[in-house]
């Protein structure tokens, strides 16, 4: 249980941001289940990695800034790190899937650029 003395409006803002972020992440995970092929599914986790992450980072910045009474921006580092790393993992994973599909001659393998 939290024992902070942050004002009511800040608590509502934090909760709204966190729920929005969690909502986008959840929709991304649902997409991982609902979409039919790998190349469609690979788009789904980006939802959590961009807007979902950004909203939760914003909630964290608001909460700790109000709680400690000064601007706490260190959570932005997580945002920066994820923004730079998520495309790298997704591109490499896409390349791996492309390579595997092409060598096996699958019908839904990507065409040549």
């Amino acid at each position: 249980m939290t024992d902070t003395d942050i004002p009511l409006w800040a608590a509502c803002l934090v909760v709204a941001l966190a729920l929005g972020g969690a909502g986008f992440s959840l929709i991304g995970a649902i997409g991982l289940i609902r979409l039919r092929t790998f190349y469609e599914r690979v788009h789904a986790p980006t939802l959590g990695a961009t807007l979902g992450m950004a909203l939760i980072v914003a909630a964290s910045v608001v909460f700790f800034s109000m709680d400690e009474g000064r601007l706490v921006l260190r959570d932005l580092l997580i945002g920066l790190f994820l923004t730079v790393t998520t495309p790298v993992t997704l591109i490499l994973l896409g390349r791996a899937a492309t390579y595997r599909d092409r060598t096996e001659g699958n019908a839904d393998a990507p065409p040549d650029p």
């Binding site: 495309p87 896409g94 390349r95 990507p110 650029p113």
Partner: peptide, 24 residues
């Protein structure tokens, strides 16, 4: 980073010889 970071588009392959890019 821009293309892959935006949901809905994925950078699949870039051919540096021809300068052509394949997106999903």
């Amino acid at each position: 980073i821009i293309i892959t970071g935006a949901p809905g588009t994925l950078w699949v392959q870039y051919e540096s010889a021809t300068g052509r890019l394949l997106l999903h």
